[in-house]
Structure formats: C-alpha cells, structure tokens
C-alpha cells in the first residue's frame, strides 16, 4: 500500500520535524491511551501545569539576569546569543541557533511558533499549553497587540511591536526590560524577576516587591 508514495530522501534535515526514539515511544503510548479513552490530551496538559514547579532548567532567567547586570555580557548576547548562552553552560539539544531580541523603550518583541518542537526548552523550560495552540500562533501574527492585552500587557501605542516566528534553525529569546527598583541587585535576585512569559514576550519582567509604578 505504500508502493505508490514518492519518498523524498533529500537529506535536508533542517526543514522537517524530528522525534527521538524515546519521544516517539511517548507519542505512541499517548495515542494508544487516547484512542482507548483512558487519557484526555487536555487533561495531560493540566496535570503537567499542576505539577510544574520546575520543568526543564529555567536557564533563560539566568541569561537575562546576567545581561541586565553585566553590559559586556549583554553586548556579547546581542552579537552572538548562541555563544553567550553557551558561556553559561546551556545549549540546546539540537544545537539550535539562538537569537536574543532586546525589549527597549521603543520596541517590544513577541515570539511565536511551537506547533512543532522549536521551542527552546533548554533555555526556557516547557512551553505553556496555550503557546502550542494554533489560534495563538495565528492571532499573535495578525493582532499582536490584542493578544498582549489578553495577557494583561498593555503597551503604549508608541511602542512598536515585533513578532518573531521561530524557524528550524533559529530560536528567539526575548530579553525583557530591567524593571526599576532593582538597582544594585545581584544576578540571583534579578533572575527571580524573570518569568518565562517575559522571555517569550507575552509578559514583562516582575517588579521588585515594594517598588512603585
């Protein structure tokens, strides 16, 4: 039955998806359990969110904190994010190329993608459930300001929004603006202000407790 299919073994591994053997086994089991009515995929997502006190190393927060505290590091991050992130000992499993995009007073960055596997979880931890949904992806491209508003992020009209679509080769890390009121903080404390959402652009960094504004 497969004889009529044309196979394209073009060895271009960059433009298609990939599952490791163990990922494929997890998918296999999941599809069996779903077909048997034993698990509901949405319920699995809920369970993961419930237990997710720490899924994957949230290394991205360390990268952001260092960029805030160390201008020389921020400069390296801007020029070659892959190398700058690797300096801290983090690298993606697939050796993906990372690009850091810096929010500032004029521009806010938002990253979309992840219908597939291109979310840089080695840096950010697991993607939130909503991030994997097709509606989020399309709406973020068409109406980024509306999506941000739903996340409680209301930006002045003057701030330009840039939406980045991850590709097989390039993953993006948003460097949120450093909040006021954390002057003189060390990197450990600063890292606590960096949320996952702030690193994909659907949130801002937390304000230091007790700070105004």
């Amino acid at each position: 039955m497969s004889g009529d299919h044309h196979h394209h073994h073009d060895h271009d591994h960059d433009d298609h998806s990939h599952l490791t053997p163990i990922e494929a086994r997890v998918k296999a089991l999941e599809s069996i359990l779903v077909a048997k009515g034993l698990v509901d995929p949405a319920a699995l997502d809920v369970i993961i969110e419930t237990y997710e006190t720490k899924i994957g190393p949230r290394n991205g927060a360390r990268v952001v904190a260092k960029a805030w505290a160390d201008p020389a590091y921020a400069a390296r991050l801007k020029t070659d994010a892959t190398a700058a992130i690797a300096e801290l000992g983090y690298s993606g499993r697939q050796g993906e190329h990372m690009v850091a995009v810096f929010n500032d007073a004029a521009t806010h960055h938002l990253v979309v993608c992840t219908l597939c596997s291109c979310y840089p979880w080695a840096v950010l931890g697991l993607p939130p459930v909503w991030y994997k949904s097709a509606p989020y992806r399309s709406r973020a491209v068409l109406d980024p300001r509306g999506v941000l508003t739903e996340f409680g992020v209301v930006l002045p009209e003057a701030i330009k929004l840039r939406v980045w679509d991850s590709t097989a080769e390039t993953r993006y890390l948003v460097i949120p603006q450093r909040p006021a009121g954390a002057e003189g903080w060390d990197e450990d404390r600063l890292a606590d202000l960096v949320t996952r959402d702030s690193m994909i652009g659907t949130g801002l960094a937390l304000k230091p407790p007790g700070s105004s504004g």
Binding site: I47, I55, P57
Partner: peptide
Amino acid sequence: AEPWQAQAFAM
C-alpha cells in the same frame, strides 16, 4: 529534564 518526561509522568 525534557518535555517527554513530563508527558510520561502525566500519563
């Protein structure tokens, strides 16, 4: 350490 582990855990 990786997303599949969370999936296996949740199942």
